[in-house]
Design a protein around this nucleic acid. Structure first.
Lengths: 139, 139
DNA sequence: ATGAATGTGGGGAAAAGTGGTGAAAAAATA
DNA sequence: TATTTTTTCACCACTTTTCCCCACATTCAT
């Protein structure tokens, strides 16, 4: 799953989901808030289950706030015949999504950004920053 | 994989990929941004999977920006019957690719440079610079 | 010199994206 | 509870873009 795709959210809160990513995400997938950035994360059914599992059995004072944040606002997305999905108003509000949207493929999941926030992110995250992070991991 | 090949990018963003490198890269390969230089990197399917794996399980505040940078802009390239590939607009913009392109074979991967940037790189990187770096490695 | 293989340009078909309309469900009022 | 109104959701059709294939040019090798 990779690539950057630009789409429009119409007056009804629908947005087309890139066909290439749809192929890999399957018939239905899950969308929830990211806690690192002001954007939404799209999980495959598998990565969603994995996320659930990773929180199981953890101390409730840690796991429960995370569960509230992630599962509380998440929505299940099923593309219609035209390949469009509806994003819940609360999620749109969180990611400050208005009309223009960028979908970013990221290996096992995808992210949905408001276009202007994506531009801002790319402005503050330079290749030099990335090179520095990569060095930390020894890549 | 070695050698330097010059090609043209046509109006539709397509470029021919050197036949000799195609043999070694296989039917489909992956292209993404380099964070060290203003150029693109061509990965084989194997080296791409290896890159994915190397980021798995790493702390998200380090891994995610890297994933956004690499996978977010990447595109899967499948040569057509004429041996041409399409390069995504975002990638072309990043590497400042206009029409003339240099493809550089580099052992297990390849790089794609805009011709003038490649000339500039070769101007500032002299054999003396390389000798100095080699000495650091004790080669 | 001739043939094969590689590289380049362009046109057409198919699929992806977008807007709008209608039907069904839900909600509200009488 | 029945009827009207509103909202939601799925489908249809048009537009745009992508991608696939054909034909021509050029280079390399025999």
């Amino acid at each position: 799953m990779c690539g950057e795709y630009e789409h429009m959210v119409d007056a009804k809160g629908r947005m087309n989901f890139p066909a290439k990513l749809r192929e890999e995400l399957g018939e239905h997938f899950y969308i929830s808030k990211s806690f690192n950035e002001k954007c939404l994360i799209v999980y495959t059914k598998e990565s969603w289950e994995a996320l659930k599992q990773s929180l199981k059995g953890k101390p409730s004072e840690i796991a429960m706030p995370i569960e509230r944040f992630i599962f509380g606002s998440a929505c299940e997305a099923e593309p219609d015949k035209q390949g469009r999905i509806a994003i819940a108003p609360a999620l749109r509000a969180y990611a400050e999504i208005t009309s223009e949207v960028i979908v970013v493929g990221m290996s096992d999941r995808a992210e949905i950004w408001d276009k202007s926030l994506w531009a801002e992110y790319n402005h503050r995250t330079t290749p030099q920053n990335i090179a520095q992070l990569a060095r930390k991991l020894g890549i």
